[in-house]
């Protein structure tokens, strides 16, 4: 059997004395869309950062396609793409330049026509030579997605890609995510729009105070709860967990 695309085993992450992830184990499989849900501060970004190299795990192991993300970081980072939650952009470079540079940084020979076609895909074709700072928030967000794709990652993380994005753009983004999955990319996303996760995700994980409350396929989750909306199920679980923590 092929190894899962992502395998986290007993991952703990501490920031000083504060434990952001507690003994978390999770597997994500080839070609699926996995939605990681949870309230603000649950540790979603922390988990993504531990996998992508932005944070250092304190304990446990993380493997991408069987490669350890610390010991084989050169291999795993080539396989993984990240659309970070925070928008950062380099004021020195245009969107086209940014994409070309990112290809090179990811270890792929910079290819102008590939960069241009990515810009077209994300409706940034006419902005390719603009100063990045003159782009609207939505455009910058799209540029981040394009940048995360320059090296054709096998596993793509989208950390709240739709926060602060208007409804039209959200739809377009999710369409793009579906297309990527169809093309064989495995996707892990976080979002505050639970109904979007309900539409898109094959499997759902709910994270709360650094612990996974549940990991289940969308179908069985909805079936188990008699077809109630995911948002209701989600809220119920979170409330129950909060009660347990309070007790």
């Amino acid at each position: 059997m092929k190894p899962p695309v992502l395998r986290c085993r007993h991952v703990t992450k501490r920031y000083g004395k504060f434990t952001a992830l507690k003994d978390l184990s999770l597997e994500v499989y080839e070609g699926e869309i996995f939605a990681l849900l949870g309230p603000n501060g649950a540790g979603k970004s922390t988990l993504i950062h531990c996998i992508t190299g932005l944070a250092k795990r304190s304990e446990g192991s993380i493997e991408v396609l069987g490669f350890d993300t610390v010991n084989d970081f050169r291999t795993t980072r080539r396989l993984v793409g990240l659309v970070p939650q925070e928008i950062g952009y380099d004021p020195f470079f245009t969107p086209l330049e940014s994409l070309m540079i990112q290809m090179g940084l990811m270890g792929v020979e910079p290819n102008r026509s590939r960069a241009e076609s990515l810009l077209e895909t994300f409706a940034l074709g006419d902005k390719r030579d603009a100063y990045t700072r003159t782009l609207s928030g939505g455009m910058k967000r799209r540029l981040l997605v394009a940048k995360a794709l320059v090296h054709d990652p096998r596993l793509l993380f989208l950390d709240e890609p739709t926060s602060g994005v208007d409804v039209e753009l959200r739809r377009e983004l999710w369409q793009e995510v579906e297309d990527l999955r169809t093309a064989g990319t495995t996707i892990v996303l976080t979002t505050h729009y639970i109904e979007e996760a309900e539409k898109l995700a094959d499997r759902i994980g709910i994270l709360h105070k650094g612990e996974l409350l549940l990991v289940e396929s969308r179908e069985s989750l909805l079936e188990r709860h008699g077809g109630r909306p995911l948002e209701d199920i989600y809220l119920e679980l979170i409330r129950k967990a909060d009660g347990r923590h309070a007790a």
């Binding site: 992508t52 190299g53 932005l54 970081f73 050169r74 291999t75 980072r77 080539r78 993984v80 793409g81 990240l82 970070p84 925070e86 928008i87 950062g88 952009y89 380099d90 004021p91 540079i101 990112q102 940084l105 990811m106 270890g107 940048k147």
Partner: peptide, 17 residues
């Protein structure tokens, strides 16, 4: 600057030692 404006992320996620 890249630490402050967040673009260091581009390098940190890349296979760069």
């Amino acid at each position: 600057q890249s630490k402050i404006n967040g673009t260091i992320t581009d390098i940190l996620v890349a296979p760069i030692g």
